[in-house]
Nucleic acid binder design. Sequence first.
DNA 1: GAATCAGATAAGTGCATGCTTATATGTTTT
DNA 2: AAAACATATAAGCATGCACTTATCTGATTC
Lengths: 104, 104
Amino acid sequence: MIENDIFKALADPTRRAIFEKLANGSMNASALREGIDISQPAMSQHLSVLRNASLVREERQGRFVNYEVNPDGLAQIAGWLAKYRAYWPARIDALKALLKEMDQ
Amino acid sequence: MIENDIFKALADPTRRAIFEKLANGSMNASALREGIDISQPAMSQHLSVLRNASLVREERQGRFVNYEVNPDGLAQIAGWLAKYRAYWPARIDALKALLKEMDQ
DNA sequence: GAATCAGATAAGTGCATGCTTATATGTTTT
DNA sequence: AAAACATATAAGCATGCACTTATCTGATTC
């Protein structure tokens, strides 16, 4: 199940950090390692998990592999979340605040 | 980190099933077990994880413990997702379709 | 074409996690 | 107050998962 792959992929803080980094601009696997204390194989494995969860996608460029956010995965989460929007009104103010805070 | 707790909690399909069930109406731990092949302790442990992730909350009623969706957890996910809404336009049609589909 | 480089894969290891059985806690019923 | 009941906790076990080192593949450079 893809939904399961997505949540499992995001259950790891390192993978969320990688994803966040990619969200600020696509880059190759080596560049992604900068600033994160992680071995080359570990990064490769994390990227594989994110790829299988349709959270990122790759594009080979010569001997580099460029990675970028794949909106499909995000849409899946949005879809999952939407099932429960009946419960959002209770938290709508907190959400608005959160969004505003993030816009600064 | 609470964000981590939330994604880890949702990474388990049984817990997502429990959460979904609660989203359709609050109920006690025993009622939750119906239809899901799961032991009493396992259910109790899953509920503990969901509780710690602020995805559900409990309310003791006599010797029963009533569980219900806690909007706080959902708001956290919505907040996380919002950080990446720059990528939503690319998938906005798919999302709309998803939402419409879910409304039937 | 040999050396170098980016990245993926393989195999092994330790810790996290979801389950089990057994037992404890707290509440209601008789 | 004893029995029954709803739920939680404890302890042990098997599997999953994130990491490691070693090696492989494919592309580039010299």
